[in-house]
Design a protein around this nucleic acid. Structure first.
Lengths: 342, 342
DNA sequence: CTGAAAGCGCTTACAG
DNA sequence: CTGAAAGCGCTTACAG
């Protein structure tokens, strides 16, 4: 509603204050160019009149909107919601407004909302690319000179990125199981190939190989609790059954815990189970879940900071912020007592 | 970034197409005023050149931005994230962009982001007011002529509202427990007074009174799983212990299930437990949780539709969309078999 | 059906 | 330190 009928303009304020529009504009942007006495006088009128700055007009003139976009593939996933909360926090501090859109893992919707954000003049965008996004998106963003940061997932090594060190996180978790004596370990969950999947799986594979173990017990499933329950059979009813399962994420791991109980088996004794993410419920499941903490809120904050920097300096060197993960050992892996390993 | 250096304008397109800017503008907005042959010619140039519509400029001139705000009190709460997903869906269909902000239950931040959205010219706003918001917010929104819809919580009966029928939902759930034979029922969870709390508690109280039972076993706690675990003691270790607990939400109920198991007690046998919300985990907890489904995604959709209507017709009569809830009976309440009651 | 002109509310040089 | 003027990229009457 830029310009709701009775909206005040700079001209109104200027007239009332007995100065020019330019001076009021300078006061609004706290320019040092204006005399203290003038500033005070104008500020008083501004408050009195309840003037509301019109950023549409300002951004048209100034070629920046103080607006930024965030594109996530699924807001229903608490992980991305938490990421959004982190982004929101940093942008609020910087005084920017946030355009949010949920691609719902649809490349078509993703295209649509990116265009929409460009039309609205967003100064830049944080993207968690939908499954199936091709690499050319990055070249197009570059061609458009549209500042961007990839977060959590990346489709190209180009440009800024903020994420967690999934590979090392999964490696450490696997290592932990091996130290507990496991030799036959299954990797459970995930069905779409994207960077987050690749990195987690690679961490598992690398660690198994390093220890001379076979890394080919890899089970692809949807990322649901139900799929985790169903996976129990596949993991145990094999010629060479696994003694431990390391899951793509906590949700799948929770499903496995339930699936085990349903069969009268005890997680951590009959099958060691490890999750990934350390969601809120992980410490309260039965048994408490051993998992890898990844801090989505902080990743969101870092992504926002990177984007702010990129907008300020479009030609600076790309940065990649990879937050360390933390193995949180609880009972589901069969470790006797709780301990934290850095 | 309205006006990135090399951004094309209507004038460029007009020149290339050999028509006036006005004509291109009409084509962009699919006006019927333009001849089919002209439309096709212009559209081709538009595509060829990769023209991007500048909505900042358009909204300044047209006094509407095709932008809408959503203010939630906590994005980390999956409930609000789901609401946001519903809002996003409807706005996408209508071609509007969404400004999202998380007040984090802070009235100060809420004020800040509302001002920001007004400055950015949002055409309207959907608000889940932060705890502690006073009624005058509504009068101010009115005075500003800023179209709004309250969602999930409301601080004033004025204006449009989209929410769930918490009161009847809680009433039905309580009734179900009474039918199962319970007489001493505790209402567990919630610490802040807002409409959502009041309505749920009122539903409980009304039902108890109607059946001549005392409704004063009300336990205020934070809305966390841990608080639910801790509440078990308070509910059972009383002169007159409760035989059933009806929780403010599922999270608290999950905590109670765990708290019972920890003491070697069986949910549904030693204490009936009922939740509220029907989150994704409710059907997979052990035992499965009897709860009341509220549909946050749909509430988000309704809120968005109401706002769109309000923007189109600022002076129409206010509407309140109250979605029915549904009691989902599972095992945690001690009912012998699963059944659904409308 | 199309075009020339004015104007939305700001900011940005440029004078003074 | 302040003001007058031009202009950002659109849309909106108004002519024709």
């Amino acid at each position: 509603m830029a310009g709701r009928p009775d909206r005040l303009t700079l001209a109104d304020v200027a007239e009332r204050a007995g100065v020019s529009r330019a001076t009021v504009s300078l006061v609004l942007r706290s320019s040092p160019l204006v005399a203290e006495s003038t500033r005070i006088k104008v500020q008083r009128i501004l408050d009195e009149l309840g003037y509301v700055y019109n950023r549409s007009a300002a951004s048209m003139r100034a070629s920046r909107s103080r607006t930024v976009g965030l594109l996530v593939p699924g807001l229903s996933n608490p992980f991305f919601a938490e990421l959004a909360a982190g982004v929101d926090q940093i942008l609020d501090e910087a005084g920017l407004a946030l355009f949010l859109a949920d691609s719902n893992e649809s490349v078509a919707k993703q295209e649509r909302v990116i265009l929409r954000m460009r039309e609205h003049g967003a100064d830049g965008i944080i993207i968690c690319p939908a499954v199936g996004t091709t690499k050319d998106l990055i070249s197009r963003l570059d061609a458009w000179k549209f500042p961007f940061v990839q977060a959590l997932r990346h489709i190209s090594p180009q440009g800024d990125y903020a994420g967690a060190d999934y590979e090392i996180g999964m490696d450490r978790a696997t290592e932990h199981l091996i130290r507990l004596g496991h030799r036959r370990i299954a990797f459970v969950g995930g069905e779409h190939m994207h960077s987050a999947y690749r990195e987690r799986r690679d961490g598992f594979v690398a660690c198994m190989r390093r220890h001379g173990l076979s890394p080919d017990f890899i089970l692809k499933t949807p990322l649901t609790r139900q799929a985790g329950m169903d996976a129990v059979a596949a993991v145990l009813e094999q010629d060479e059954a696994a003694t431990a399962a390391i899951c793509f994420n906590d949700v799948v791991a929770f499903g496995m815990l339930l699936g085990l109980s349903d069969r009268g088996l005890e997680p951590g004794v009959d099958l060691a189970v490890v999750g990934f993410d350390d969601v809120a419920e992980a410490s309260l499941s039965r048994p408490p879940l051993t998992t890898v903490a990844t801090l989505p809120n902080q990743i969101g904050q870092d992504a926002a900071r990177l984007l702010l920097r990129r907008i300020a300096d479009p030609h600076g060197l790309p940065e990649r912020v990879i937050l360390p993960t933390r193995l949180v050992v609880r009972a589901s892996c069969g470790a006797l007592r709780s301990q934290r390993v850095a």
